[in-house]
Design a protein around this nucleic acid. Sequence first.
DNA 1: ACCCAGGCCCTTG
DNA 2: CAAGGGCATGGG
Length: 309
Amino acid sequence: MQIYTENNKFFDPLKSINSGQVFLWQKYNDSWYGIDGQKVLKFTLKKQSLDRNQNNQRGKKWREIEFQSYPWKENWEKLFFRLDDDDESLKNTLSRDKIINGIYKKYEGLRVLRQNSFQCTITFLCASNTNMKRIRKMLNNLSKKFGKKISYDGIEFDLFPQVRELSNASINELISCGLGYRAKFVKSVAKDIETKTINFEDIGKKSYELAKTELLRLNGIGNKTADCILLFSFDKLNAFPIDIWIYRSLLENYSWYFDGDLNSFSTGKMTKNQYDAISNRIRNYFGEYSGYAQQYLYYHIRETARKAW
DNA sequence: ACCCAGGCCCTTG
DNA sequence: CAAGGGCATGGG
């Protein structure tokens, strides 16, 4: 058991785990538990410690958090919540843009997460052309059906399925989890990882461009899904996933920057070239922390649209 | 009934 | 190249 006190470095774990990045977190009593691959991550907020300088809105800012996990992993939170990022540099880079700067202040503490890469891959394969609620449902079903069961704090958890457990699954079993047409993609991608058609060990070491080229070879992984995987599990902070909501946000906030080049996606479709063109321009604008910019834009537009997480 | 949801693949022109 | 249709499923 630990209490987190490092340099008063502020972050907001609740926003971070409820921002469309991870879907297998649940609250029991005063603690949050999340499945990350073959681990159960746990944190507990200590209610008595509130910030003394700000207006003390109860529940807004916490000074003490306990982190635990099963199996035990020392300081897992530093990796998972990316507390190793250079927040000064991040803040300075993002604040060059007035719009992002405002949104950053509004949701400060929201972090890009560093997830288990296989779970992240399956998550965003399942996320195509559907909604948050069903993504969560699909992943829960997969874990229940194929994942190892463990007991922790007297609670039963289903770990996320391992590669082999999904590559060996039948299409019908996967469909029974509610995956629909995604079932065949999940199986074939798991197979490709198992047989090292793609080498997941090396992919994090490659550049953003090369790693993305590798991912795009796999059936079911397109531009947007690849960018999510690279940003959320392979340390590519310059990735900028563009889905329908981010596209709307760009239209709303940055049409001046694109000078009329954003008009081709109103139907919800975009060709690879169009995606690449938009991606390259916006990543050139936001720079090495483009992924954080994306996450803040995403959080903001979903909040203002009052969409559920 | 229809449209939309953190898209992608395949065929055709 | 782009344009368009199809794809499973569930909620509004």
